[in-house]
Design a binder for these strands. Structure first.
Lengths: 233, 233
DNA sequence: CGCCCTGTTGATACGATTCAAATATCGTGG
DNA sequence: CCACGATATTTGAATCGTATCAACAGGGCG
């Protein structure tokens, strides 16, 4: 439940012009001249599993591009309960609300070891005034975020627990080859799907027994995608 | 279940300069000169209860500002089930995805009699190139939409059915004075909260019996806001 | 080695769904 | 304006699924 001593490390200044995920990144359309306008350096940071990137309500000063890893966004309700409202991975942006809001809307925590680029919001604001492509790219990001939120509602918050688990496995497999997918704690799994830890665990165990998934290493699963798909068709 | 012959009516060309919700509208910051750039007229439309405004997957050509009424956005799953993913009301925008997407992400249907202004997406795209305030306003709208989606996940898709119903009643009361709130069918209520029609109905009946809400007219409720709040604190 | 944390499993209680029936409401045409 | 049929809502009883509480197994770490 409680996660203490999160751990974060600075790993260098980003070289955006030679970024290896450049084509899917916020700055993909920027010219070399545009980069001259970026005065403050863009830092690269590494977070360990469980490390908090920012907290809900904290002053929002930066947005982040995920280079590798998996990040959860958590929201807390007044009654003390909480729910994971999104999972973000390579090339996704977290903290995009900093452009238009003073504070972060969620807590962001690394679920897997994660590398980020930190973009000071001032930089983004300046660039987006002069660069309409960046603006369009930003809009597309908002759209993507909203689409994911909608999927969360329809796929991860609706229907019986087994279907929700299956849909999440399929979602996690989307970006990895041959049905590989890396999971995380049963507690977080429950918080994604609006289920208890025990139910999440039971469903995973049952899928394993029925041969839909196997677990070569801890939390490294192999999914029988076609049959899983059939389960939730 | 089935709603046929939805009904829509053109009620005039909008006079944006003298709009009575101008301060909360997308064009609030536009100058008179900006409006000269708006070549195509902005139509005002009226929709009856149950009328479809656009369908999921349809070619997205316009976005709409809600002047009065209540609109549901529905998403359909491959297995045939559906879920209402957002409710939108006065000053909200629907179809904002048309700016960056070819097709609408949801079906939009009027739950109450509804008046809209239809803004051709071309107009928005042109204006947002030259007008950085419109830019910023658009971003703020995306942010608002995303925040609402997050509320949907945490408040309307999590926890026991009674709490979900109560949270929705509080949400509906937010924009109306003294705990008034206008509801809609139990079926839609269920589709908002991820519950069956029967469960939604039972919860409403129980809240009524316990005195938390009363129903002076059909689907016109009076809510005891402080005590309802206490229920979900 | 033993402790703590996470995950798994079991038994039971509770809550939501399902199916069915009765009642209320709405819209329409007489 | 009322009566009728269609539709929506409410209620009931049985079933099913999930939460809860509790116990236990396994792995990692001091």
């Amino acid at each position: 439940m409680k996660r203490i001593s999160p751990n974060e490390a600075w790993t260098g200044v980003a070289d955006c012009l030679n970024c290896n995920i450049r084509q899917s990144v916020l700055f993909s359309d920027l010219s070399e001249a545009d980069f001259d306008l970026v005065h403050r350096p863009i830092d690269q940071l590494t977070y360990a599993r469980g490390a908090e990137i920012y907290g809900m309500g904290e002053k929002a000063t930066s947005l982040f591009t995920i280079r590798t890893g998996l990040v959860k966004l958590t929201r807390f309700l007044p009654d003390g309960t909480h729910r994971i409202v999104r999972l973000l991975r390579k090339t996704d942006i977290i903290g995009i609300e900093s452009i238009v809001s003073d504070s972060y809307s969620h807590s962001a925590t690394a679920l897997h070891p994660t590398e980020l680029c930190r973009l000071p919001v001032g930089t983004i604001r300046e660039l987006s005034n002069s660069n309409s492509r960046l603006f369009h790219e930003l809009m597309a990001r908002w759209h993507r975020a909203l689409s994911e939120a909608d999927r969360w509602i329809t796929e991860f918050s609706t229907g019986p627990s087994r279907d929700r688990v299956v849909r999440l496995l399929l979602w996690l497999s989307e970006v990895e080859p041959d049905g590989r997918c890396e999971l995380f704690s049963r507690e977080d799994l429950g918080a994604v799907l609006g289920l208890t830890t025990e139910t999440a665990s039971r469903m995973m165990a049952e899928l394993k027994r029925q041969g839909y998934i196997s677990e070569p290493h801890t939390n490294q699963f192999l999914c029988d995608i076609p049959n899983l798909r059939r389960l939730v068709a």
